[in-house]
């Protein structure tokens, strides 16, 4: 392709976008809008995954010992727990520590505790952490059967709900991405079809004087790609700004809430939006040109 030909393509593309300013604006905003929804969904999926992973690591097995256990039994149980497959840490919580924690949690209302008298109702317990959350369900019953263990509990429902939620988000995410991509494609196809229709005479003449299909296609392809890219750029900008704002407001109010940091999350999302936008633009113009190239 010679330089003058490239120049010609760019000139034609600019001319066409100028001539169809309103329609170009409409498609840029529609692309931006659908990619915006897509981008926000991606932000949500990534963050849900992140939160799920975080919560999974927080899940532990609480092993409550009977009050009659002797020091030796406690030490032996701790040893047994440590030797179980997949157990990464075992932390002993004495009765006194448990009571202390509870007081802390009550804060100002710790006075309530005086009503239970001097007796400490909390059992001696171990907090058992495991390497993989999937292991919890199989380990808990085993621990439960150990001698002098009262009960072994874990947040089974929490874990299962988290798994279910992430699965739904993943499947739903893929579906939504496909749907939005198709809607965007449809809009681009129609925009380009209008510009092609306005220039069908030109396309026909080009065919008659011996232009190759690719020569005819290039300006339209560039136009579609430009519209898609610009729309994606707008969406990426809005998402970046919005996510930054969300992060700072979450940090100031719910500091412990585990949201992903902007970097590299926004990089991934913005790059994929730009790729999707440009790709859809290119596909849209190719589809809408097909009919007109048959002369």
């Amino acid at each position: 392709m010679s330089l003058s030909t490239k120049e010609y393509f760019v000139k034609e593309t600019v001319k066409s976008i100028r001539r169809n300013q309103l329609m170009s604006l409409a498609s840029v905003s529609t692309v931006a809008l659908s990619l915006l929804v897509l981008g926000f969904f991606m932000v949500m999926v990534f963050n849900t995954n992140h939160i799920a992973k975080y919560l999974e690591t927080q899940v532990q097995i609480s092993v409550y010992m009977s009050d009659e256990s002797s020091e030796e039994t406690l030490a032996a149980t701790e040893k047994t727990l440590r030797e179980l497959p997949g157990v990464t840490s075992v932390k002993a919580i004495t009765k006194e520590q448990a009571l202390e924690r509870f007081k802390e949690r009550l804060g100002d209302q710790s006075g309530l505790l005086s009503s239970i008298g001097d007796e400490n109702p909390f059992p001696y317990s171990f907090e058992v952490h495991v390497d993989k959350p999937e292991r919890i369900a199989e380990l808990a019953p085993k621990i439960d059967e150990l001698e002098s263990v009262e009960t072994a509990k874990f947040g089974q429902e929490v874990v299962e709900n988290i798994f279910r939620l992430t699965k739904i988000m993943r499947v739903g995410g893929v579906l939504l991405v496909l749907l939005l991509a198709m809607a965007t494609l449809f809009i681009i196809v129609n925009t380009i079809r209008i510009t092609v229709f306005a220039r069908r005479r030109e396309v026909t003449i080009m065919k008659y004087v011996g232009a190759t299909d690719w020569f005819i296609r290039w300006p339209f392809l560039l136009e579609g790609m430009f519209l898609g890219f610009t729309g994606a750029l707008v969406a990426a900008f809005i998402i970046s700004q919005a996510y930054g704002a969300i992060l700072s407001s979450v940090h100031s109010t719910l500091a412990f809430f585990p949201l992903l940091p902007s970097w590299p999350l926004l990089l991934y999302i913005n790059v994929s939006l730009l790729v999707i936008g440009t790709g859809i633009g290119a596909a849209g113009s190719t589809i809408s040109l097909r009919k007109f190239l048959k002369v």
Binding site: M1, S2, S4, T5, Y8, R201, E202, T204, I205, M206, Y208, V209, G210, A211, F215
Partner: peptide, 29 residues
């Protein structure tokens, strides 16, 4: 190829209408 209805591009000058046929086959400017 020549048609009864000329088939010219109304938004291009006479020169550009003719040059068009050469641009399309990528002739040197």
């Amino acid at each position: 190829i020549i048609f009864q209805d000329y088939r010219l591009l109304p938004d291009r000058t006479v020169y550009d209408n003719v040059a068009f046929a050469m641009q399309v086959i990528e002739a040197p400017p």
